[in-house]
Amino acid sequence: MNYLKEFTKGFIKENPLLVLALGMCPSLAVTTSAINGLGMGVASTFVLFMSNMLVALLKNVIPNKVRIPAFIVIIATFVTIVDLTMNAFLPDLYKALGIFIPLIVVNCIILGRAEAFAQKNNVLVSMLDGLGMGLGFTMAIFTVGSIREILGNGSFFNVKFVTEDASTVLLFIMPPGAFITLGYIMMLMNKLKSKLY
């Protein structure tokens, strides 16, 4: 088994958001700024990494017929841990991400990796898979957030680079902008993939 390949496949070739189209809801909803995108990406990566590790570790003591509820319990636990920790130490980011923190639990990427990968593979490679997929997701959602913040608010990481009164393309920060930005990024990704592979 090629460890490097398992780690890097989530970056471009099997990018969970841009190629597999998983985890759409948070990628559209919270990406009004670069920092929100990054925060959501990191939170999801943590859950994905931990749940992949635990599922791979426990795969033999979980009977086949109850595996989905077992996975859900595991994932929901890590989501709640992230929820409580962010509420305590990053209250502003927690408020900004809002309901989409508990909703990490239904992010198809996480249950999908548990079901399709971690329950069939050893712990180390499952951890690499979780981390790689998580990073791929983080990069994608961070890109969406950056584009929307730069075009829609004229700032990057809350640092304004236009004057206070300058008009920005507000559309990008509003809901339609989310769909349009992600649509065009996925189109570019299609182009890139057809060139690369």
Partner: peptide, 28 residues
């Protein structure tokens, strides 16, 4: 060997996971 999907196994496994996870959560 992977545990077979018998009723006692299923109940035991799910209960153990839930209890451990609930304990971890109340700690956090």
């Amino acid at each position: 060997q992977k545990l077979a999907s018998t009723l006692p196994n299923m109940v035991l496994s799910l209960t153990t996971i839930s209890v451990v996870m609930a304990l971890a959560l109340s700690f956090v």
